[in-house]
């Protein structure tokens, strides 16, 4: 990769991280409960930037939060968030974005595999986040899943569908970023 491309991808990754941070403040109402768009932007980062730069973007986003910048859901931040009940979900973003990115790269952006990767990545976030929540908040499995997974599944399904629609709309305009 040339120096120009390196700089370009670095700026893209930083702006996707900024978009992810901004997604913590953008909410779309589903009935009475608003859902934030943060994890939709994590999935879009993987799809647009690929595994390596996607991982870099999300890694820097998490680091910004660890340094105390208000970039996590609802505008929170701080190293303490990683040790709290939601720390697992945050760390789960790293394998999630890598998974989406690598599947998108290896399958030549096949729609079926990309949607499957987004579903898998979302489940991966829960796979790390729910046990973490269970331990950190000292909950039973049923309560941990009831509080940390079930209420968000509908929102996640909508986010995956929206991410797919968005990626189809913007790829022709943005060109082959991760190709």
């Amino acid at each position: 990769m040339s120096d120009t491309q390196q700089v370009k991808m670095m700026v893209y990754a930083a702006l996707m991280a900024a978009l992810t941070a901004a997604g913590a403040y953008i909410a779309v109402p589903i009935g009475p409960v608003p859902i934030v768009l943060q994890n939709m932007f994590v999935l879009l980062t993987g799809l647009l930037l690929g595994s390596r730069w996607g991982l870099a973007g999300v890694g820097v986003y998490l680091l910004a939060g660890a340094f105390g910048l208000p970039v996590f859901a609802g505008g929170t931040g701080g190293i303490g968030r990683f040790f709290g009940p939601t720390g697992g979900y945050l760390l789960g973003y790293l394998p999630a974005v890598y998974m989406v990115g690598i599947v998108s790269e290896k399958t030549n952006r096949n729609a079926f595999f990309e949607v499957s990767a987004m579903i898998g990545a979302t489940l991966l976030v829960y796979l790390i986040g729910v046990p973490w929540l269970k331990i950190a908040a000292n909950l039973s499995w049923a309560k941990a899943m009831g509080l940390g997974m079930y209420p968000f599944l509908l929102g996640d399904a909508i986010k995956i569908a929206a991410a797919f629609a968005i990626i189809k709309a913007v790829r022709p305009v943005l060109g082959g970023l991760n190709s």
Binding site: I26, P29, I30, I35, M40, G155, I166, V170
Partner: peptide, 13 residues
């Protein structure tokens, strides 16, 4: 909500 997200996303990106 799907429609709202799908409409907001492309111009933003």
């Amino acid at each position: 909500p799907f429609h709202r997200m799908a409409i907001l996303g492309p111009p933003l990106l």
